[in-house]
Design a protein around this nucleic acid. Structure first.
Length: 150
DNA sequence: GCCAACGTTGGC
DNA sequence: GCCAACGTTGGC
């Protein structure tokens, strides 16, 4: 079972929103590398839920992939901010997955702390200049983060 | 709000 | 195919 990290701006969609709604489509990804990772996800994979663009950027909990990649409907919706006129329904350019709430960390594992963990040096999240919003997390990294957050 | 870093676009 | 210009991300 693979592990992932997914960024969300808490003002838009937070871990508490996911807890309340139980499940949510993870749509609006418009970066090819991140899209390719969405397509590589399998049902049952777990993902770290990360809050970005906020006062204290941090991993705040865990979600589980509850539906594998499907065509992101927002790309075909002219009213959506994620609309992509260049994407054809016969050959959709962008994918989404559905995630389910698993649990919230006891306390947020802040970016500052993540940067101090030697296990995470290879993780794009803590590398300067990286903006990738969906990324794989290896076993060692996963264990280190979950242990520190639990 | 600033700005560094990066991805995308489009002229040539 | 190159590369300058532009837009976006996201920490600070």
């Amino acid at each position: 079972m693979a592990h992932w990290l997914m960024k969300s701006e808490p003002d838009v969609f937070s871990i508490d929103d996911l807890k309340r709604k139980k499940r949510e489509a993870w749509d609006g990804v418009r970066n090819y590398q991140a899209r390719n990772y969405l397509r590589a996800m399998a049902v049952g994979d777990e993902a770290l839920f990360y809050h970005s663009s906020c006062a204290v950027p941090a991993v705040v909990g865990i979600a589980r992939i509850s539906r594998a990649a499907f065509a992101d409907p927002t790309q075909f919706d002219p009213a959506s901010e994620y609309h992509d006129a260049g994407s054809k329904p016969a050959d959709p350019r962008w994918s989404a997955v559905e995630v389910a709430f698993v649990r919230k960390f006891k306390s947020p594992l802040t970016l500052e702390r993540l940067k101090s963990m030697p296990e995470l040096t290879g993780l794009p999240l803590v590398q300067r200049g990286t903006r990738l919003s969906v990324m794989p997390v290896d076993e060692l990294q996963w264990r280190a983060i979950v242990e520190a957050g639990s």
